[in-house]
Design a protein around this nucleic acid. Sequence first.
DNA 1: CTATTTTTAGAGTATATACTCTAAAAAGTC
DNA 2: GACTTTTTAGAGTATATACTCTAAAAATAG
Lengths: 226, 226
Amino acid sequence: MKTKDKIVLTSLELFNEKGERNVSTNHIAAHMGMSPGNLYYHFRNKSDIIYEIFKNYELMVDSYLNVPTDRAIHIHDLISYLDAVFNGLWAYRFIHQDLEHLLSNDKRLREDYRYFTLRCLEGIQRIILAMEGSQIYRPMEDQQRKSKALNTWLIVTNWMTYLKSIHASDDPEEALSRKSIQHGVYLVLDYVMPYLFEDKRALALELQEKYRFDGIAPNPDRAKAS
Amino acid sequence: MKTKDKIVLTSLELFNEKGERNVSTNHIAAHMGMSPGNLYYHFRNKSDIIYEIFKNYELMVDSYLNVPTDRAIHIHDLISYLDAVFNGLWAYRFIHQDLEHLLSNDKRLREDYRYFTLRCLEGIQRIILAMEGSQIYRPMEDQQRKSKALNTWLIVTNWMTYLKSIHASDDPEEALSRKSIQHGVYLVLDYVMPYLFEDKRALALELQEKYRFDGIAPNPDRAKAS
DNA sequence: CTATTTTTAGAGTATATACTCTAAAAAGTC
DNA sequence: GACTTTTTAGAGTATATACTCTAAAAATAG
């Protein structure tokens, strides 16, 4: 593997683990057993590394949001979309940690991210439309489909942040459990449930149940105290 | 006003405007025309300033989520809750910009925030329950109410971040429009719509319409290109 | 008016960060 | 095997950051 690609991989790993803010270019170089000078031979600056990582992320997510054209769409498709998306978000979780800062530091990234978001929202709308086409979702107005897409996006992109914020331990090594990440699928399914045709609901509920996880926020005893 | 309170106010202002990461204690002092030494006389460190700001935020949000006990709850109540919450989020928007970093730097804050979240989720559930009680929401199971509360929370707490991320300009001075912030209310109302009793829906739709704003993401022409 | 406490200024420090520069080593080419 | 190009090391730099320390000014109390 090329050194350049290794830098990208290592950076992603460190950014996810410790947060982009806490990882300097010197850290990355040191972690790879290489000199800072070498790192800067491959990348002009830290932003360029981040940009490259984002491009990979973009590529991955774009590949997820394709509606099958050769056959009708099924509830299982919806679930595998969600599963894939949440895994992707996990693999690139540092991006959503302080997105605003990343965007304000790199004009290209800001612009690309903007269109990336719009593309995702359109992708979600196409999925909804396809589900309507195969009698899973009840038909809805354009405006409604738009809102659904946006709400879904908000839920999905905020799920990791939420999990990390209520995680009791401040040890970044203690990863969130796979189960708790998957509960995001449960939530999105709960969101779409009312729009399903009645005859599909039983199946959806059954599939949903596999993604449920109650152990996210233990001992809320103190919740009432300030 | 006490110097200490002025520091808190100025910090909040600067954090919101430029992002907490880009505002040093020296900046805060300079912006107030005072010496760093003076600032550190009032606060032991930056974290303590943030903690104080958070405590104000907490107080504010907690005050929002009270269900009226002297009368039945109405759709208008729901809307004024949402309106207030979004305004509150705007006023303290830096908190959600890189919450994870704030939490990982301050154990007290991490713990407090955790219980704050749980309290909010319970508050939302109580509101839902009250709405069921006054024949606005259709009755639902505990588990469902829990999911609704969590999804609402995810939508609400991510709305500012979303807006800022698709905002074209990188000029932090160019504030987001009031209208676009309010569209968050529209979205949450769209989310709850299916759970309303049919006879309440017309009114809800009418009220919702006032919060709609389409100018969030203009010219998505390029969205298909990568 | 004196004594004490609170508040302030301002210079200073240790550390980290993003990044540069030069020169040597390694790899590739003919 | 001479050469050219690519890759690397490593020392160094300018700047910023969070925070400390000392002493003077201002406010308060008796």
